[in-house]
Nucleic acid binder design. Structure first.
Lengths: 108, 108
DNA sequence: TTGACATATAACCATAAGGTGTTATATCAT
DNA sequence: ATGATATAACACCTTATGGTTATATGTCAA
């Protein structure tokens, strides 16, 4: 509750293909903005906006290091999507959701 | 209409809370449009648009029965989201993704 | 201190998204 | 046949989204 920061929805954040690609890139390695931007045909400013949305959803975090800003993945909010999805898994895969339930409740 | 069917992205389709609620409603039961619309404060026209987007993503399907159009859930496209997510599961739950891998490859 | 580099921000634009209301058409009950 | 019901099809409005360019600000290296 540090601020009124109108937190961006995770579902909205991952709705865009460019942002999903950013997440994939950062899942390999933390990277400065310039390096992220090199992977796309859009302008750096556009990339920065996507990074802002991902930051609002807390899917990525950035630290300043010298004149660079280095972003890294923070996958934790994705559990919200996973939980939402798990409800629907029963419709296409019963044994899997049963197993998941066992695993998630063993917690040793 | 084999040509330009302009299929809607599943990720975009589930990005909207109203549409996720529609999916939940249809996961309980198939329902006509009027019954779906009753659950929301928006106009029926707005609901119909959401239904169109969900239909484009093939997350729901409708059949005409008399003067009603009855929609039902088609959860299969959600597997795309699940697969995308499964890549990130390793970051918060290793044993789970290993188990999933075993289950998904046993297929007997 | 100058210049090159990395990022930030402001102003702007086109289009898509999400909503409204109205009208038209098909269907069912009487 | 008539009137009520269910949805489809429009036309329209407002805001969000994804992109652009241009102009700062801060940092390192020579």
């Amino acid at each position: 509750m540090s601020a009124s920061a109108e937190k961006h929805d995770v579902f909205k954040a991952i709705a865009d293909p460019t942002r999903r690609e950013v997440l994939r890139l950062l899942s390999e390695n933390e990277r400065p903005i310039s390096e992220i931007a090199d992977h796309f045909d859009i302008t750096r400013t556009a990339v920065t906006k996507h990074l802002q949305i991902l930051t609002d959803a807390e899917l990525i975090k950035g630290r300043k290091e010298g004149r660079e800003k280095i972003y890294h993945l923070n996958p934790e909010p994705l559990t919200e999507v996973q939980q939402w999805l798990s409800y629907y898994e029963k419709f296409w895969s019963n044994k899997l959701s049963i197993l998941k339930h066992i695993v998630e409740n063993s917690e040793d």
